Simulated assay, not measured.
Amino acid sequence: MNPDNLAKLIDELSAMFHPTERDRPHGRWVEAPKSAPPSKRRRSKTAYQLKITLNGIRPPIWRRVLVPGHATFHELHLIIQEAMGWEQAHLYEFDFGSVLIGIPDGWDSFQLEKELMDARRIPLQQWLTEEKQKFLYIYDFGDYWRHTVTVEKIETLPKPLERAACLKGKRACPPEDCGGVYGYLELLEAAAQKDSLADPELRELVDWMYDMKGEDFDPDAFDVEEANERLAYIRL
């Protein structure tokens, strides 16, 4: 997709979704801990096409998003949360090998061997420098959901993006607090044979999953329009 078409796509999405503070979904928005932001950041015409893949699950769960270079890594965290369908209920970090980027409060003492950087202060364009670059996004240090983020394309657009967009994706996001990859796979296996389950604990877990995700939960379903409705609340 060329830059003009990408810009047109973003304009169309912005025209479709005009959220207000009153419309913001209650309980789905966790503000960053207080931190003095950079004085006045410059808006960038650079845009990144990123593919976010949840590790350890087959068939894969993934999203393709378009984000501006001036977005911070904390804003990328919010974008991934809404595009994937997570609930912003846990801590996170981006792992570049020798460097971690996240919210330092509460976890810096556990990673003394790595340099720690504040996600609220660092724009993507400071670290994302080439196509095919990969890094990790880790969400929930208990369930430890590991996502591989791949820089698929770096584009220069006619004007800066105001919002991120989800271009495509596959399969539904797991429920929060389900025990990580192995817990989710066990849930799916139990759900597939729910009517014949003899183990009351497994039946209770399956009922809990449907309480969390809805009785019509389909692990193979993904709605890109719903993802973009959620992303529309994030102004960049």
Rank of each mutant, 00 (worst) to 15 (best):
K134I: 11
G214D: 04
H74P: 09
A221G: 04
A47P: 00
E155K: 01
A47T: 04
R203H: 08
R43P: 00
P200N: 11
E113F: 07
A227D: 00
P104S: 08
E82S: 03
P200T: 11
L197D: 13
Y139I: 05
D140M: 10
P25R: 08
D211Y: 12
F217P: 01
Q125H: 10
R121L: 15
K8G: 06
Y144G: 05
V151G: 06
D195V: 01
P37Y: 08
S109A: 13
I52H: 08
P174M: 04
L157C: 03
G214P: 11
F96W: 13
R121S: 14
F96I: 14
V65E: 06
F73T: 06
L128F: 10
D207Y: 03
P33S: 10
G214A: 03
Q88I: 04
E12V: 06
V206K: 07
K168P: 00
E12H: 09
R163D: 09
A192N: 13
T148Q: 15
R203P: 00
L54H: 01
E21D: 09
D143F: 03
P33W: 14
A172D: 03
M117A: 13
A191V: 00
F135M: 04
Q111C: 13
D223L: 01
P123T: 00
L76E: 08
Y182E: 15
Q49V: 15
E75D: 07
V151M: 05
W145P: 05
G69N: 02
G183V: 03
L100H: 15
L161P: 01
Y144P: 01
V99S: 10
Y184G: 07
W29C: 04
M209H: 09
L136T: 14
P33K: 09
V224M: 01
A32C: 13
L188I: 11
Q111K: 08
K114T: 12
Y184P: 02
A172W: 02
M16W: 07
Y182A: 12
H147W: 07
F73D: 10
L185M: 07
Q125G: 04
D4S: 04
K170P: 00
K51M: 05
R171F: 01
F222L: 02
D140T: 08
I79T: 15
E215C: 02
A36P: 00
A190N: 14
M212A: 15
R41L: 02
E215H: 06
L50N: 09
Q193H: 10
L124Y: 06
N5L: 14
G97D: 14
F141G: 10
Y48C: 02
Q49I: 14
R64L: 05
R58N: 14
G102L: 13
D223M: 01
P33E: 14
E201T: 05
R120A: 09
L128K: 04
E155D: 09
S109W: 05
R41D: 01
G214F: 03
A32V: 12
D223A: 04
A165C: 10
E226R: 12
A221P: 05
T20F: 01
A227V: 02
F110K: 06
A32N: 11
K114Q: 08
L124E: 07
F110E: 13
I57W: 11
G106E: 09
L205R: 15
G56K: 11
L236Y: 07
I80F: 10
L100V: 15
R58M: 12
F217M: 06
D199T: 02
N5A: 15
Y182H: 13
H26I: 15
